[in-house]
Simulated scan of single mutants.
Amino acid sequence: MQKQVLPTSLKVSALLLSVLGKPFPGLAASLFLRLYSTPPKRKFRSTHMEVKNEAKVGEMQLSIYPFRGDQIRLATYSWGQSDKKVLLLHGWGGSPLDFKHMITALVSSGYEVISFDAPAHGFSAGKRTNLIQWMHVMHQVLQQAGPVHAIIGHSLGGLNAALTLVRQEVTVPRLVMISAAVSAPSFFKETYDLFRIPPVVVEKVEQQILKQLHQDLKELDLFLYPQQIKAEKILVVYDENDTVAKPEEINMFLQQYSSISALRINGDGHFRIMKDKVVIEKVLDFLN
């Protein structure tokens, strides 16, 4: 397994959190959550703008959390026109505009692709966001969009989709999880280890999540919900060279879900998988 190394831009933050951790654990926890909930800024290339220009672009005003009444503006996209809709969900720091090859293939096969920039991503409003907000937003999008034939989620978008289908009274015919995270506690732990966050700060982080977001972090884990994802059929696609969504963890998840179809490839890792020809062909075959 490839060991993850902090980029230079985050080493100062890691050092600061380490220094503050023991004398000021509450402050360190607040700084950690602020950093953790701020997605990286994106610069869109001309190829991204081509994908956007081919879309029908719109906006939605949705409530920001289930426990708050204020709203957030989301940028929305649709490609093609069909009774068979596919909802495409990007991951952390991602965009629907990254998935040109998948969108083109779906539209050519007779599907309408709908998507949106998650809060604090792309052309949507907000500076910080989190998985709790993503699940709430996705549920509202499904309510407004009407029935969808399938949801395709990449990375954190896959975990978002699966947890939403566990928690809400929503069922879809097909769910595709591509390079998807399967456990929020697991990737939090990886970040704690990477930043060398002391246990006293970890405890404060999870207390603040519970207080601010009304959510126990430990519950955001698909290992707790075997056979409870409300999709008629599920396909998991992953890459044995992925250093973000760990293949070992996905293998353990698949052992719990004997009914899930799976495709494991030897490709180029976490991000390029969405334009892999074998993956696209498998997804189309699964949706049909």
Rank of each mutant, 00 (worst) to 15 (best):
K85Y: 09
A180K: 06
T129E: 09
I152L: 10
F116L: 00
W134R: 14
L159G: 05
S108P: 00
R167K: 15
F99V: 05
L106C: 09
T129H: 07
S109Q: 09
E112D: 04
A145W: 09
Q144Y: 12
G93V: 09
G122T: 08
A125H: 13
Y77D: 04
G158W: 01
P198N: 01
I103K: 02
P96C: 06
V113L: 05
P185K: 05
T104Y: 12
G153I: 00
S78R: 15
A161T: 09
H149Q: 13
Q81V: 14
I72W: 02
P185S: 09
H136R: 06
A105E: 02
Y77H: 08
S78C: 12
R174E: 13
W79G: 04
R196I: 13
T171L: 13
R174W: 09
Q143W: 00
Q71P: 00
Q143N: 13
S109T: 11
G146Q: 01
S183H: 06
A75Y: 10
D70G: 10
A145R: 07
Q71F: 12
A105Y: 08
I152H: 04
I103M: 03
V202R: 15
H121M: 09
G110C: 00
S186D: 14
V166G: 07
L175W: 07
D98A: 02
E169M: 11
R128W: 10
L131N: 03
K100V: 05
I152E: 02
R167D: 14
V202F: 11
S109Y: 03
M102P: 07
W134S: 12
M138Y: 03
I152P: 08
L142C: 03
V141H: 01
Q71E: 15
F123D: 15
A150S: 10
P199I: 08
F116Q: 06
L131M: 08
T76M: 02
N130C: 05
L163D: 01
L165R: 03
G158L: 05
D193V: 02
T191Q: 14
Q133R: 12
W79K: 04
W79E: 02
P147V: 08
K85V: 11
E112N: 07
P96T: 03
E169G: 07
K189W: 12
K127G: 13
F123V: 11
V141N: 09
L74W: 04
L159W: 09
N160W: 10
H154N: 01
Q133K: 11
P198E: 08
H139R: 14
G153T: 05
I178E: 06
Y77V: 06
W79A: 00
R174D: 10
S82D: 06
Q71T: 15
F116G: 04
L87C: 12
V170M: 10
I197D: 02
A75M: 12
G157R: 07
R174Y: 13
T104C: 10
V170D: 00
S78E: 13
F99N: 03
S186C: 14
V200Q: 15
V200C: 15
Q144H: 14
K84D: 14
T171C: 12
F99S: 08
E190Y: 13
A105M: 07
F123Y: 15
M102Q: 08
V182D: 03
S109N: 12
K127C: 12
F116W: 06
N160G: 09
T104F: 09
